[in-house]
């Protein structure tokens, strides 16, 4: 039997909108993943430390307060610095599509905007997560 996908769901910054993060945590768990939700007010350092400690395969970042361009690349850089290069990093929230390219260049594998079916997010993770 394949090992369960381990996922960190994180809310960087001071944003309090966590309906989406909590909903996805539940849906990922139902899809057979092991999910740790960090709660609010996470710094990039806290998120990456959680990923390291939990030996996570995936880190999901949720932002609805317009801080994605500040936080997402920092999480990507820190993951690289810690040698966690094969951790799949994805994000979502209120993020203008014109920012997607820059975020992908900075190390995000995918950005999921409002209205994305959760099944699409689950299959993206399943198809792109590291195999072990």
């Amino acid at each position: 039997m394949a090992k369960k996908i381990k996922m960190i769901m994180a809310k960087p910054g001071l944003d309090g909108h966590d309906r989406g993060a909590k909903l996805l945590a539940r849906i990922f768990a139902e899809a057979g993943m092991e999910v740790v939700y960090t709660g609010l007010r996470q710094t990039p350092e806290m998120i990456v430390a959680a990923a390291e400690q939990e030996d996570a395969d995936v880190v999901g970042l949720s932002s609805l307060s317009g801080v994605h361009n500040y936080f997402f690349p920092r999480v990507a850089d820190l993951l690289k610095q810690k040698g966690l290069k094969d951790v799949l990093l994805v994000g979502g929230g209120i993020i203008p599509t014109e920012d997607y390219d820059g975020l992908k260049k900075a190390g995000m594998s995918a950005i999921f905007g409002p209205g994305t079916p959760t099944t699409d997010i689950v299959s993206f993770i399943e198809n792109n997560v590291r195999k072990r």
């Binding site: 910054g13 001071l14 007010r41 710094t43 307060s65 317009g66 801080v67 361009n69 500040y70 936080f71």
Partner: peptide, 11 residues
């Protein structure tokens, strides 16, 4: 404040 980084004037 360090926790304000990226958030100033945003929402």
């Amino acid at each position: 404040h360090p926790l304000s980084m990226g958030e100033v004037g945003k929402v």
